[in-house]
Design a protein around this nucleic acid. Structure first.
Lengths: 196, 196
DNA sequence: TCCTCCGATATAGGATCATGCATCACTCAA
DNA sequence: TTGAGTGATGCATGATCCTATATCGGAGGA
């Protein structure tokens, strides 16, 4: 329950996963228990304000109060910068990450059948794997993969897969298409992508 | 305790007071009890995340997650918009005057210890700072601040501080209560000042 | 004066947070 | 297979949140 905080909690989870930080590692940094964090992230309990602040701090985030009128502006600011920030500890080397993601896609295709979107995901992953990605780009890929893992079994998976496919392809195009390209970044630190 | 959340809580209190909303009115909007809000604001208890979100929502604020790196930028954004485009006297000498006065009060509290009157002065200054004052009102504030500066070190300071506190609070009440109907609040929150 | 509103405080009881274990099923690498 | 890592789950205990209700002193306004 507690629909109000769902979005904030989901954001911390996305950042944590995108940074390659495990619940146990986070629990040590934040001074909480892994069990506690698991229950919070899975919506089984509602954290106290200070617990939640501990979590955000441990993720190098800050909880800020913003007048409603300025929310879109702040959102734009955050989105534009796409936080190439968390080097904390890349849990896995990149190609392992890609390998795992490709296995996941393969499994999904077996379980739920092939789809154009899954094909696109597979295709772009294969491409991106062979390219040198900068921090920002890698960050984006990490987040997209994390989302894919999280929602793989959801009955809402279809539109999410579609969105992931689009983001991956956009990244691929911007790379293949000549160096600069804008930090197109459909980023995660804002709009909730979930859920029901 | 809970130093991390103190700042956020203090902010909600400032916004609430600046909007002329009582704890009781806020409690109705947020769906909490007045006693609860009092204890939170005075630091006697730590709210749950959802309770705190209820409070912020009721104050037309949004709780946002921002990468630490972007905090200064967001702060600048918020601060820039904090005062509406209302016809403020150019150059903001008023703001500086308030800032100076608040520093003075803080210093006095350090030197001579806290007192109810100093607290009142501090509170009312914080309120008045965010409000558009007409010439007459600003004149009164100027005089009061000048008196405070003049008598800060006097051994007769106590009754003078008391008198200043009373005058400031009277002014605040007349404004918050809509007495003189004029430009008004920087933070506009609909005036549902009712309560039980 | 009487009345209203303010914020702070007290009490009691029920709900839930949070910890500290332990354990589970799962995935991956050696 | 074995060992390590992941997140989810269970459970007992203690802490504290949160409500509901009532009261208090202080500050106006009628």
């Amino acid at each position: 329950m507690a629909y109000q905080s769902e979005r904030l909690i989901a954001q911390t989870r996305e950042v944590r996963e995108a940074s390659g930080v495990s619940q146990r590692a986070l629990s040590k940094r934040a001074g909480l228990t892994q069990s506690h964090i698991s229950q919070i992230e899975s919506g089984k309990m509602e954290p106290g304000l200070s617990s939640f602040i501990d979590i955000t701090r441990a993720l190098d985030l800050e909880l800020m109060l913003v007048p409603k009128k300025l929310v879109p502006a702040v959102l734009g600011l955050v989105k534009a910068q796409a936080t190439p920030n968390m080097h904390i500890h890349a849990g896995q080397p990149n190609d392992k990450r890609f390998a795992r993601a490709e296995r996941l896609v393969k499994k999904m295709k077996e379980l739920y059948g092939s789809s154009a979107d899954l094909d696109r995901v597979e295709d772009t992953l294969r491409f991106l794997r062979r390219v040198n990605l900068n921090d920002q780009e890698m960050q984006l890929v990490r987040e997209l993969i994390a989302r894919l893992e999280r929602y793989q079994a959801s009955d809402q998976a279809a539109p999410i897969v579609r969105d992931i496919a689009q983001n991956l392809q956009r990244l691929r195009n911007s790379i293949a298409h000549g160096g600069s390209a804008e930090p197109r970044a459909a980023y995660s630190l804002d709009e909730g992508d979930d859920d029901a």
